[in-house]
Nucleic acid binder design. Structure first.
Lengths: 142, 142
DNA sequence: CCTTTGTCCTGTAGTCGCTACAGACATTAC
DNA sequence: GTAATGTCTGTAGCGACTACAGGACAAAGG
């Protein structure tokens, strides 16, 4: 019951930025694109945040760190906000994103193999002949 | 000697797009940002391309496929255009990019581990309890 | 030869996820 | 009281494209 009025924190935007490590402008951006709710304002129009906003921003930032798109985060938040989400629904979003991440890793690994293989044949000397340039210049190169 | 005038091809932008697989608008974009040279024009102002342009666009596209940034590609092209490049110079650009690619792979693999580990604990059932949501909601979560 | 249709031209706006700045008001420190 | 911050708004910029509007031309059919 004592933590029922946990929103009493009354933080400024800079406080929220400092506490979460989020960039000051990014907070306003997240509000603008609907990831953060419109906060209450002081009489002069300054944003006032509470503990709920700190939590919400933390959620968004952790989701971003895991590479979720803003679209996906909006989806996750609307599930949670609805109050009747299920693990199955959340897992579905997560699995989709995991597939995207794995696809990106595969693409980058293919690039890495090509690049590493090509560069390993570079002489590193003053000749203009270069396996990397050959690869870039010719579709049929090694 | 017969292939000395290979630039006689006289291709339209759509031909160049079709031959290389590049998007039509992207060709104009590459010209605008200096990756492709300003091509000669027909009397009515239409772009006319030759074999050199096909090669150049191929170079740019292969470099993009390997994830080189436009900045890096501009660098590589200016080395080649200068005519006095060395393998060492090209290799340096390539090695730098390889490091960037490897760093991206590491970042994505860290994401993948977290995501896969969390999702593997999901029940996939109708309960609102969800390990993925726990991870996103709480900085101190598993 | 003339009309239609297709292609090309230019410039501009949209995408994603921020980041940064300008200029106006509010608060705080001294 | 005043000077120095802090916050407000809107807007522009990044990279690497992609797409569209509105106009001018070119190729093809009748």
């Amino acid at each position: 019951m004592p933590d029922d009025h946990a929103h009493a924190a009354d933080l400024k935007r800079s406080d929220l930025a400092r506490m979460t490590g989020c960039n000051l402008e990014t907070i306003r951006y997240y509000e603008c694109v609907g990831l953060m709710p419109d906060p209450p304002r002081s009489p002069s129009g300054h944003r006032r945040y509470g503990a709920a906003h700190v939590e919400r921003l933390g959620f968004v930032m952790r989701a971003r760190e895991l590479g979720f798109s803003m679209e996906e985060i909006r989806g996750l938040l609307s599930l949670v906000d609805r109050g009747s989400h299920t693990c199955a629904e959340v897992e579905k979003v997560g699995r989709h994103h995991l597939n995207v991440v794995r696809a990106k890793i595969r693409d980058l690994q293919a690039i890495e193999r090509t690049l590493a293989g090509t560069i390993s044949r570079c002489s590193g000397s003053d000749t203009p002949d270069c396996p990397l340039l050959d690869t870039l210049s010719d579709a049929r190169a090694q």
